[in-house]
Amino acid sequence: MSNTTLRVVLGLTVAALILATAPLWAGRADLRLIGEMMSYLALAVLWNLLAGYAGLMSVGQHAFVGLGGYVLVIGTVSMGLPPLATLPIAFVVAGLAAAAFALLLFRLVGAYFAIGTWVAAESVALVFAGVPAWGGGAGISLPADVVRSIAETREMREFVVYWLLCGLGIGTLSAAYTLIRSKPGLALMALRDNPTAAVSVGVNISRIRFWTYVMVAALTSVVGAIIFLQKLRVSPQAAFSLQDWTVAVIFIVVIGGIGRLEGAIVGTAVYFLLRETLSGYGVFYLIVLGVVAILVVSFSGRGIWGLVERHLGWSLLPTGRRMSA
């Protein structure tokens, strides 16, 4: 193992340990907040792979968050499955749905693709809103016995969900890092920087795009299932919320640094910092978010991390290959 790899593994392990032991030193509200940050970190890492690397500007990822939430509820309520058993199902269902979407959406490029993903997401939401057995437009709650099956006490249940979210946040980040350090990662970086040149040196960009889209959707759906395991209730509006699961995530990645793994981390930190300090100010909070977004993208196409990287030469998760090595 090289020195840099060792440092990254060590860094991620320490972060995981600190997060995992948080129930010992942090309060309930703090745990909820950290858990939420972790869920956004995971969503941001995934959207960054999709848009920042594979060049697929999807604005319809809420389709898969919602799908995950509904798989959780339908699996537990209608099929009597334990909540955790629904996670792999969410993964598979969303992966298959994404593969089906890809058949249609991959015929579109650029802005047309973006709009297509949005329309696809709204269609999925309409389907779930239209089935009375799944709560229709009002939504459906997890029954008490299902909730208890997660853990007996409320405290323990919150810990379990918290740990799942942390595992997901750190796990997604580690997986993305491993991916970018592997050969498919080279293809993704080539695709990010110059699709024309990538094709001309033999990179199969349709295959890498397809699999990125499918895998990101599958994992996004697992994140969704765990998010709603915490909320204990799904409704079409909440599960398929454009603002919560797509717009916020795009904000995070774009201000943090699109096309850089560190971008998701920085963006999540900035987003929550702004939200926690300004949420009491109503509309003013949204104005600040907008101003921050405009300022950041005006000065750096690669977000805050792009500036840090350019001027300070820092790298938290180095993915570079050196000839000398």
């Binding site: 050969k183 080279l186 293809a187 970086m189 080539a190 990010r192 920087d193 110059n194 024309t196 040149a197 990538a198 001309s200 040196v201 033999g202 990179v203 199969n204 096309g259 570079g320 290959r321 050196r322 000839m323």
Partner: peptide, 22 residues
């Protein structure tokens, strides 16, 4: 010229060697 601008010179060549030669 169409370099992969976010990567190093070596990484540019590495991508070509890895994918162009499978």
């Amino acid at each position: 010229p169409q370099p992969f601008t976010g990567l190093t010179t070596y990484e540019n060549a590495l991508i070509a060697a890895a994918f162009g030669r499978a």
